[in-house]
Design a protein around this nucleic acid. Structure first.
Length: 255
DNA sequence: AATTGAGACAACCGCAATCTA
DNA sequence: ATAGATTGCGGTTGTCTCAAT
């Protein structure tokens, strides 16, 4: 006995969405909100599978979507996050407001992969293509597959971090603290707090006073040259540009 | 003008995770 | 505790556009 289908396939449309279908979906979600995707098609008068409606809304119709070309900064953020998270497109998308996981996945496959290959970097491993495979047995390894509970925790914290980071205003740190006073944001995918320094009034990763700015957190900028590192003792700044402090470690998210 | 191939992106599919009765 | 329902995710495919020939 197999799994029951998510919808009655015989009576559902497939393929590209029409303007009328889009309008119906938008009107329904505006009136009733998101959710309950299984019953939505019938309620909205659509001959579509609930999954199809959800996908269409999330990837195309949602009003907060940015659309348009990716910026250089977004490219670099995606590359850095991919080196950390692997093909966790939804988590990566969580760090890029207005972008969807599907959009980022497509963009990765069509643009960034080629971009990295042109730089001589293997997009799968983020290592130089000619770099010989190393034996990392003796190096500390962060394995994302080590423990499903830990993975879930990291994922949740990454999402919580994001929830407190979405604000694009300069006061995101204080507002995040106000809205999420009880959150322990140190456990997210941010660099370890002991490596973090004075804040820059830009986008912030965790909202903690001692953090790097987002650009330094992602390794897009050398924190030694950034105002966020002012007043930091020498031994700490030495790890500033080490993305997530993993210079000595292998980030193994696939094993 | 017709053909073809590559690039870009929307959409589908199957599975896993999560929820709920 | 458990089974079925539902949702979310990532891989893959289908289709459209456009430039090269």
């Amino acid at each position: 006995m197999g799994r029951s289908p998510c919808c009655e396939k015989a009576h559902t449309n497939k393929g590209a969405w029409t303007k009328e279908e889009d309008d119906k979906l938008i009107a329904y979600i505006r009136a009733h909100g998101e959710g309950c995707w299984r019953s939505l098609p019938k309620a909205a008068g659509l001959l579509r599978c609930g999954k199809s409606c959800r996908l269409r809304w999330i990837n195309y119709l949602r009003p907060d979507l940015k659309r348009g070309n990716f910026t250089e900064e977004e490219d670099e953020i995606i590359i850095k996050l991919h080196s950390l998270l692997g093909n966790k497109w939804s988590l990566i998308a969580g760090r890029l407001p207005g972008r969807t996981d599907n959009e980022i996945k497509n963009y990765w496959n069509t643009h960034i992969r080629r971009k990295l290959l042109n730089r001589g970097i293997d997009p799968a491993t983020h290592r130089l293509i000619n770099e010989p495979a190393q034996d990392h047995h003796d190096e500390p390894t962060i394995s994302f597959a080590a423990n499903s509970k830990e993975i879930k925790e990291m994922k949740n914290n990454a999402e919580l971090n994001f929830m407190c980071n979405l604000e694009e205003s300069a006061d995101v740190a204080s507002s995040a603290r106000e809205r999420c006073p009880d959150l322990n944001l140190e456990l997210g995918i941010s660099p370890p707090s002991h490596q973090l320094h004075q804040p820059e009034p830009l986008l912030r990763f965790t909202g903690r006073k001692s953090d790097l700015c987002l650009e330094c957190n992602l390794g897009l900028k050398n924190s030694q040259n950034c105002r966020c590192s002012v007043g930091v003792i020498e031994s700490e700044t030495s790890v500033g540009y080490d993305f997530l402090g993993l210079k000595a470690s292998v980030l193994d998210y696939r094993s």
